[in-house]
């Protein structure tokens, strides 16, 4: 669900310019322009393939790492209903990671390769998950703001030119419709609860607001990949367009909750019919992206630990399958 950081730089080869390639590329671009879907075995420019691999795998990693901050609260959820909902939600995130890894695998990279990139720290994931979840209200704020921002990012990708990515996204968007609503419901319960609960809700909003705005990625002026990605219809709106749309719909929701957006510059602009918001601290964004956020270390370590400690299990399953194969061969 979490697509920020997907513009972070990769090293795809620039287009080769032999006449053959030029013709293939022209035909490819014509198909994209005609809104035809590109499927796994179709010819595609290497840059397109690499951009997709990078974007889809980062998206998948984000889902998987994204299980951790909310997963913190599964054992402490305040009611059994909330516990069940949270388990189902975190489980969905794992499922969405899998749909996305599946889609990326159609481009000729294995899940193991992608996992290795994540665990070595080479691959990026949405840096929103490097923020901590110290209180129950964080579960509400993540659902409301982080899932809200993610949905806004993801809906356009349902129309992405690459078939497997678009199909995975359709499924993900359909399943995620409950995630944001459950988050808002948690915030609403807290906002209408005891003074301590209201304080908890406001505190979570204070901590998640700016990171949520950063989820849309660097501003258009800074974003390296936007133009090419838009031409290839991997991306349909710019980072700033989506960010503005998010602010415009979220501010009234915060008002409804009786919570205050932590931005002294925030105001409604009658002329443009949009909210104007204060400057984003991109230095912080860059720091978190570089690995210096509050929980980068913990998140990666948790993934590495799960991977390392699960190795004997995965190996045993393969060994058993091999034994079964041999037994079947002998019996035949």
């Amino acid at each position: 669900m979490y697509t920020q950081g997907l513009d972070s730089p990769g090293r795809e080869a620039l287009h080769a310019s032999s006449p053959d390639t030029a013709a293939l590329e022209a035909r490819f671009q014509a198909r994209v322009d005609a809104d035809e879907k590109i499927e796994p075995k179709d010819w595609m420019p290497e840059g397109y393939r690499q951009t997709l691999i990078r974007q889809i795998s980062q998206h998948a990693h984000s889902e998987v790492v994204g299980m951790l901050p909310e997963g913190n609260w599964i054992t402490r959820a305040p009611t059994l209903r909330r516990k069940a909902v949270l388990i189902a939600k975190v489980q969905d995130e794992g499922g969405h990671g899998m749909y996305l890894y599946s889609a990326a695998e159609t481009l000729g990279i294995s899940r193991d390769q992608m996992m290795a990139q994540l665990l070595s720290g080479a691959a990026k994931y949405s840096s929103i998950f490097n923020y901590p979840t110290p209180t129950w209200a964080d579960v509400g704020a993540i659902g409301w703001l982080v899932d809200g921002a993610a949905i806004m990012n993801q809906i356009p990708i349902c129309r992405c030119s690459y078939g497997p990515y678009a199909r995975a996204m359709v499924r993900i968007c359909r399943e995620e419709s409950f995630h944001q609503r459950q988050g808002f419901e948690i915030m609403m319960t807290l906002a209408r609860g005891t003074p301590e609960q209201r304080r908890m809700a406001q505190d979570a909003l204070n901590r998640w607001w700016w990171p949520a705005l950063m989820m849309f990625g660097p501003s258009d002026a800074e974003s390296r990949h936007t133009a090419q990605s838009m031409r290839w219809k991997i991306k349909r709106f710019t980072n700033d367009e989506l960010r503005q749309q998010f602010v415009d719909i979220t501010v009234p929701q915060a008002r409804f909750l009786g919570l205050e957006i932590p931005d002294p510059h925030l105001r409604w602009d009658e002329a443009s019919q949009h909210y104007v918001f204060g400057p984003i601290d991109w230095a912080e964004f860059q720091q978190v992206l570089k690995g210096n956020g509050p929980c980068n270390r913990e998140r990666l370590e948790a993934r590495r630990r799960a991977y390392e400690q699960g190795r004997w299990v995965r190996e045993a399953a393969l060994a058993h399958a091999e034994k079964q194969r041999q037994r079947a061969a002998q019996a035949a």
Partner: peptide
């Protein structure tokens, strides 16, 4: 509907069930 990784066919069926038929 998609793919799963599994060590054997029985596991693949279970994974497919858990991943693709939660709803």
């Amino acid at each position: 509907v998609g793919s799963v990784h599994a060590a054997d066919a029985r596991m693949a069926i279970e994974h497919a069930r858990d991943v693709y038929t939660r709803r």
